[in-house]
Design a protein around this nucleic acid. Structure first.
Lengths: 233, 233
DNA sequence: CGGAGTGATCGG
DNA sequence: CCGATCACTCCG
């Protein structure tokens, strides 16, 4: 029992994880965990994994070693929590600026990689990456004007979402929509209704209700519920 | 000024210390102190350091962070002092059983590591350790029959000690002698004379004067005093 | 697999 | 709350 490899259900379909036990040296008996994308690319650490998946799913509660979402990680980011408790937003988190992920992460810790295959470009290119790489879309970025959107990525795999759900704002796609809703469910105990005002479609920057995720108002059907359950959401 | 490395005069010759400031993360700005043995082995904590040096020198007043002997630490070990005060040995500590280091340490907290390089032996080996590791000799162990002495260590660096000083008992070497004398100076205000009885050489276990360190009677010369001063003793 | 660098935990 | 210790991560 030194080497196992199996599906990681906490990650999107097709991702596998593997555990390899060290055989010798000072660290004999310890093990290393690796992940493999559907295309076979190997990931050796959580930061490396987050650079690929961080924008399409929340990995803050993901435990790299076990491959599961750990509730114990939800209480972290204590500095931020302390800050939020002292603010005037008690009990009413701004879902568009207080994600369970560090906000700074998208700006400072997760470099926006320019994916290109131009021969003169010195940036390392990884053809496989174009397949695995989630869109660089990040809905906060849209609002702040930091647009890392790459239209070449538009063709990347589409997300499966109920038809009743529609995003709001420029460049809002299924992927950012999923983030927004998941985050809202994650952060708030209040009902999630979406953006009720019709005006938000005209000028999202002005009419945005920050207590609701960036999606249009929607009706949850029984079919939607079954769908969510199947996804483990 | 993030990384410095210099000689640590409070430790034996050749030991260096280093301070490294953490650059990132939640603990950015904090610093870590490391020590390096003459052979380059890195030590990351006082307990770890004490496992190597604790048998040959008293680290109870050694401040790991600053690398200096702190007078403020001399008042510690209160439980032991209280015990000694209640015993019948008031003002006359038994120098052979009440070291300034915890006695239990040598038995329970400091595992006696079997150093071997036999290929069939599964115990992890560390060739470098044979150089750094002080002898496992501990004069109490000699008396109690717990002998972890490794004759392979016999060739390890010799200690520089005045010729007038000679140890008493089986397996007593310069290293244990140094411990004994340093401890005696440290613990007792009474004069250190050594073992005055000639009988102690015949049967140390029976004739031992426990109020004196395990060394033969000696005469301190002016040259000896200069030597001690040079060593910082 | 090693090891520097950082996080997690515990005791005071 | 803080510092000391130790476990662990992550990348070479």
């Amino acid at each position: 029992m030194e080497k196992k490899r199996w599906d990681c259900t906490a990650l999107p379909k097709g991702w596998k994880m593997e555990e390899v036990t060290r055989k010798s040296g000072l660290s004999a008996g310890k093990s290393d965990v690796y992940y493999f994308s559907p295309s076979g690319k190997k990931f050796r650490s959580k930061p490396q994994l987050a650079r690929y998946l961080g924008n399409q799913m929340d990995l803050s509660s993901f435990d790299f070693r076990t491959g599961k979402m750990l509730m114990s990680k939800l209480n972290k980011n204590r500095q931020r929590l302390r800050y939020d408790n002292n603010s005037q937003n008690k009990g009413k988190p701004d879902l568009n600026t207080s994600l369970p992920v560090r906000q700074t992460a998208s700006i400072f810790k997760q470099p926006v990689t320019k994916v290109t295959n131009h021969p003169n470009n010195k940036v390392k290119t990884d053809p496989q990456k174009a397949v695995d790489q989630p869109r660089q879309l990040f809905w906060e970025k849209k609002l702040s004007g930091l647009n890392a959107y790459d239209i070449a990525e538009e063709l990347v795999k589409t997300m499966e979402l109920p038809k009743g759900l529609q995003g709001v704002g420029p460049g809002c796609t299924d992927k950012t929509l999923l983030s927004a809703i998941a985050s809202a469910l994650h952060t708030s105990a209040a009902p999630i209704t979406g953006q009720l005002s019709a005006a938000v479609e005209k000028n999202p920057g002005v009419w945005l209700n920050t207590a609701q995720p960036l999606c249009k108002a929607f009706i949850v059907t029984d079919e939607d519920i079954r769908w969510f359950h199947r996804r483990g959401a």
